[in-house]
Design a protein around this nucleic acid. Structure first.
Lengths: 214, 214
DNA sequence: GCCTGTGAATCCATTCACAGCT
DNA sequence: AGCTGTGAATGGATTCACAGGC
């Protein structure tokens, strides 16, 4: 019996857990483990087994009753769902320490996220050639470069006061998703998505819990 | 009427929103705005006004009915709650691109998070002197340095296969909270807290939503 | 016997709506 | 009159528990 699919709306937390599942699955794959049960996978991820089953069931019937989930197949399905079975072109704006570190981060490339362009408003950086041959451009070139290279996702690592303007340039150049590292709340058009990352928020969280245990 | 406090358990999402509130409050502070209503603050943060009021009410009665919240006071209270009214000593393990970028990140220092030590197992890096005068040590020194400097929070930016071992060294040296950038699920003792950061998870999220809009 | 897939039950968070205070 | 603080209502997500299939 095939689920009619696309009917039921999928909860956001479910989406956010899929990457969590894929990490241990990759390890099981390398260790040539052929099949995994929801209980084992759940333990590896630190979640409830029923959660795993329910999450996966939103997208289809990937398991076999009495047996479990075939590791290779499940991983393939998750990658398909998360659209990591293709490449995505990124650009980065802001080549400070963090921006450069992200640009050179091998994890991105490994998962199909390719930095195809890099922008910085510092004249000393414009024209510089980065490790993979990308040439740093001034942000005013965004409107030209982004459509030409068909870049779909922008990463912002500028100081906060530039972030909003950069975001608008990216959006109007055709980018529809932004990963924002600037500690500021970006306004974005309806059709576009912004994901914020702010390490100090994580630290504040830890500090709160530590302080609570006095 | 003073809330008896510490009675009601505070929801995790509430804690995670407090930093969100503090950012715009700092801006209002600089703009010399004396008072803010839950509605205005909510709009600045992109949340529901009732949410703001309920979140704040968990910790006390900071507002004045018919008026709003005094900006300076509210900010002070939030900082007290999040324990950002004091300094926290951090150490970092793993001085790759990302580790170095975090180490030099000025946002941390600005909020009272001080990197007091840095570790890396690469012999070429051990002994190197970092911008703020910290000398890179080998991770085997964790058990000595961490207690001596009274470091409370560890940041892990090693490759994934070293992360678990490093975590255990940090914990047994007395660290009770870890901010983990390695894409792996760390096992941790009951009394300790781990917060994970994985940018590829954020990108996978964006990719999923982009792919959905075909 | 074992493990998935899933309705039902529970738990938790958000939003509403208004009483209470200035 | 205006805006907070909060019980009540709503809306979701997690967990339970078991039916269904290997």
């Amino acid at each position: 019996m095939v689920k009619s699919s696309r009917k039921t709306k999928i909860p956001e937390p479910t989406i956010e857990r899929l990457p969590l599942y894929s990490r241990p699955l990759e390890e099981l794959m390398e260790a040539d483990v052929p099949v995994v049960s929801s209980e084992t996978l759940a333990k590896l991820c630190g979640v409830n087994p029923a959660q795993v089953r329910k999450d996966l069931a939103y997208f289809g019937e990937f398991g076999v009753r009495g047996v479990g989930y075939e590791v290779a197949n499940l991983l393939k399905e998750i990658n398909r769902i998360l659209a990591t079975d293709r490449q995505w072109k990124l650009c980065i704006v802001g080549l400070g320490n963090l921006g450069s570190a992200l640009f050179e981060n091998q994890n991105f490339k490994r998962r199909g996220y390719i930095f195809a362009a890099a922008f910085d408003s510092d004249p000393a950086k414009v024209g510089r050639i980065l490790p993979n041959g990308v040439v740093v451009k001034h942000p005013k070139m965004i409107e030209v470069v982004v459509p030409k290279l068909e870049i779909e996702i922008g990463v912002i690592t500028t100081p906060p006061f530039e972030a909003q303007r950069v975001a608008e340039m990216l959006f109007s150049a055709g980018v529809r998703a932004i990963l924002n590292f600037a500690p500021i709340q970006l306004r974005s058009p309806e059709c576009c998505i912004v994901e914020n990352v702010d390490f100090t928020v994580n630290l504040e969280n830890l500090a709160y819990h530590l302080a609570k245990l006095h």
